[in-house]
Design a protein around this nucleic acid. Structure first.
Length: 172
DNA sequence: AGATTGATCCAT
DNA sequence: TGGATCAATCTG
């Protein structure tokens, strides 16, 4: 299981390094696993695409918290999105898990990932590990993986910040 | 391209 | 307390 230190690094590095790692979910005595194929970094007070850009609120407080904790939110009234908090305490940042491959099934999009892994607000703000039943394991030799970068999805409203290549995905 | 859906945030 | 706004997805 990846340590808290892994998530205390620069968010862009964490987002890139999470590609190829294995997401593990223990749910009702069953283990669900999948290789992470797509992530996005949300980083800093100034990132207009980040929920934390307007400062601390009840919802975003978790992004200012300890690395390696889970941030889950509901979007469009229907879909949960899974994020993992990164970097130092009081620096708002997290990585959104956008894509996972599990048992040959391609889960493209954060809403599908959350649904498949039974992610909802019950594990919001919990640390990765036994308590949340969610953690990340090392994958196979990350050095052999080809990773592409691109602009983040669905954040056009963020102007210049939307153009930054803070999305990472496995090259096919 | 349009409908769906509700938590969250901030102020007409 | 109300209304605008969303880190999306499915169906055509």
């Amino acid at each position: 299981m990846l340590s808290k230190e892994f998530f205390e690094n620069n968010t862009l590095d964490v987002a890139r390094n999470l590609i190829g790692k294995v997401l593990v979910r223990k749910y009702r005595g069953r283990a669900i696993e999948g290789v992470i194929t797509e992530t996005e970094a949300y980083m800093g007070h100034n990132d207009k695409a980040s929920h934390a850009s307007r400062g601390r609120t009840q919802r975003t407080e978790i992004m200012f918290g300890e690395a390696g904790h889970v941030y889950v939110y509901l979007i469009y009234g229907m879909y949960y999105c899974l994020n993992i908090v990164t970097e130092a305490k009081d620096y708002p940042s997290a990585v959104l898990i956008r894509g996972v491959v599990s048992s040959g099934i391609n889960l493209n999009g954060p809403g599908k990932v959350a649904r498949y892994f039974h992610i909802d607000k019950k594990i919001n703000t919990l640390p990765l590990g036994k308590e949340s039943g969610l953690w990340v394991e090392n994958g196979k030799s990350a050095a052999l993986i080809k990773i592409n970068r691109g602009a983040r999805v669905g954040v056009d409203y963020a102007g210049w910040w939307a153009k930054r290549n803070w999305r990472f995905y496995l090259k096919k």
